[in-house]
Simulated scan of single mutants.
Amino acid sequence: MRDSIKKAIGETVQDIMNSGFKTSFTEKELNSLGVTIPEVQLSTHQIKEIRETLNVSQTVFAKLLNVSPSSIRQWEQGKRQPTGSTRVLLDLLKRSPNILDYRLKA
């Protein structure tokens, strides 16, 4: 496959994925098209900023994320970093702070 065609297909696939359409590409297929899933990077300041945007304490934030309050403290102090799906969830909260509003019941 010519590089220009491969690049165009890769960009189209990336656009499809970014738009929210369901896809069933394998990692190998995505790699062959040059489509990458970037790693989520969050600084200690960003994690604290996400929590403050939600206007909740560390304890409440921990309950929303289903982690220990100690984890929140350690993330905000830079002693540890969130991992896996928690990192992705924090990135989603950074982009859409109201995403977990349903978890707060009045």
Rank of each mutant, 00 (worst) to 15 (best):
L54T: 10
L64P: 08
S70H: 02
E52Y: 04
I16N: 03
S68R: 02
S70C: 06
S32H: 14
R51F: 01
M17F: 07
T44D: 10
S71I: 12
T59R: 12
V35P: 02
E39Q: 02
P69R: 03
H45A: 10
E49H: 13
H45W: 13
N55H: 11
I16D: 01
G20D: 09
W75T: 07
K22V: 14
F25N: 07
E52I: 01
L54R: 14
V56H: 00
S19E: 03
F25H: 10
R51K: 03
K28T: 13
R51T: 05
P38I: 01
F21I: 12
K48Q: 08
N55Q: 06
P38Y: 03
S68K: 09
I50M: 12
L64V: 02
L42A: 03
L64F: 05
G34M: 00
T59Y: 15
T26G: 05
L33G: 03
K48S: 08
Q74H: 15
G20R: 14
Q74P: 04
N31A: 05
Q77E: 13
K28D: 09
P69E: 02
S57N: 02
I47A: 14
S24D: 13
M17Y: 14
I72G: 00
Q77L: 15
N18D: 15
P69V: 04
S32R: 15
V56Y: 00
K48A: 13
I50A: 06
T53M: 13
V40L: 08
N66S: 07
K22N: 10
F21N: 05
L64A: 04
K48L: 10
V60K: 12
E27V: 12
S57R: 04
L33P: 06
Q41K: 06
R51Q: 01
E52M: 11
E76Q: 10
L42N: 03
I16G: 04
F25Q: 08
Q46R: 12
E76L: 15
L30C: 00
S70K: 01
K48H: 09
E27C: 09
E52K: 09
F21G: 02
G34F: 00
E76F: 10
T44L: 09
Q74N: 08
W75E: 03
S57Y: 04
T53N: 10
S68A: 07
G20F: 11
I37Y: 02
F25I: 08
S32T: 10
E27L: 15
R73Y: 11
F25S: 13
W75D: 02
V67E: 00
K28W: 11
K63F: 04
L54M: 08
L65V: 07
R73K: 11
L42D: 07
L30P: 02
T26D: 06
I47M: 09
S43Y: 13
Q58G: 15
N55D: 10
K63Q: 11
S19G: 04
L33S: 05
Q41A: 15
P69Q: 05
K28F: 11
S70R: 02
N55R: 10
L30Q: 00
I37T: 03
N55A: 14
R73F: 14
S68G: 07
S32A: 14
I37V: 06
K28L: 14
Q74F: 14
V40Q: 09
N31W: 01
F25K: 06
H45Q: 12
S71L: 06
S24T: 14
Q58Y: 05
